[in-house]
Design a protein around this nucleic acid. Structure first.
Lengths: 155, 155
DNA sequence: AATCTCAAGTCAACATAGTTGACATGAGAG
DNA sequence: CTCTCATGTCAACTATGTTGACTTGAGATT
């Protein structure tokens, strides 16, 4: 699961711009890469990868979430969730218990170890954002957020 | 190759924000999704997917690129390039010819059909960006670019 | 008590996108 | 005639996802 290898650098290739927005398009690509690169490397060291992080991230922000809700939030099938989720339970980064009344569903929570890993992985991503925002200033950061919201909510 | 299915919507989940930058972090995730969603759907209708688009995109902007250079730009192994590239050649979206002097390397070019598909797929992505930039105004777009550059070039 | 529903879990088969490693081919250069 | 070097190809593997078909176990209904 996840190699330590990779070009890691993957310098932004200099391609001829055929359209006005090609530069922006490429920035989205390399921006995503830039934000996740260190987090992925950290996760790989822990024997984890992005799907595990996504689970930890969501459970951290919705303690006692049921598996069905987690599936909805992640937008994947339960079969796809199965493996990474079980690994996290085995590694005791997550706990699951049945709720007192709603005995049908299982509630997920992070253990202390799970919280630590979630925090460190997300910290790598936030660090990249923070440095960029610091350079851009408060108004630049706000403008970035506004544009990203428009892109994310498009349609 | 690529299903037409998917939640397609995948509404931005409302998660408790544990940190200042969690909102920004999630925006990067959903922004990437938002930009590529329609392009991926279009490509799927053509029986293609993102790796094919990446190849078409690069070759469009570097006509007569050799395979070795393409590998560098894409940052994948030649074995990984092999299948999508051969599909594009079979479907006559790309041509390869040996150059007159440098007989060792093969030069890649888009056919008219390849250009059409590349353009349409990229247009879907640019459309999302254009609408967001229109709302944000020139200064907002410039700020977005500046922040994304800082993120992309981080490290 | 018997049955229905519903969340969760599990098994199999498959698709896609990537990896390493090993080796073949074909042209140019020495 | 051999060496290099870009390209091509085969095999085996990993990881992340998909559908479809089923089981299990608890709660609710009749």
């Amino acid at each position: 699961m996840a190699k330590t290898s990779q070009a890691a650098g993957l310098h932004r290739a200099s391609l001829t711009k055929l359209h006005d927005l090609d530069a922006a398009l490429e920035l989205m690509y390399y921006g995503w890469r830039g934000m996740t690169l260190e987090a992925d490397a950290y996760l790989a060291k822990q024997g984890l990868s992005r799907p595990h992080h996504r689970i930890l991230y969501v459970v951290a922000r919705r303690p006692d979430i049921a598996i069905g809700s987690l599936l909805e939030v992640l937008g994947i099938s339960k079969q796809a969730l199965n493996r990474p989720l079980n690994l996290l339970l085995e590694r005791k980064l997550l706990t699951s218990k049945r709720s007192p009344e709603q005995h049908r569903s299982k509630l997920l929570r992070l253990t202390a170890a799970g919280q630590r890993i979630e925090q460190r992985a997300s910290d790598h991503e936030r660090k990249v954002l923070r440095e960029a925002f610091d350079r851009a200033g408060v108004s630049g950061a706000a403008a970035w957020m506004a544009v990203m919201e428009a892109i994310a909510d498009h349609n």
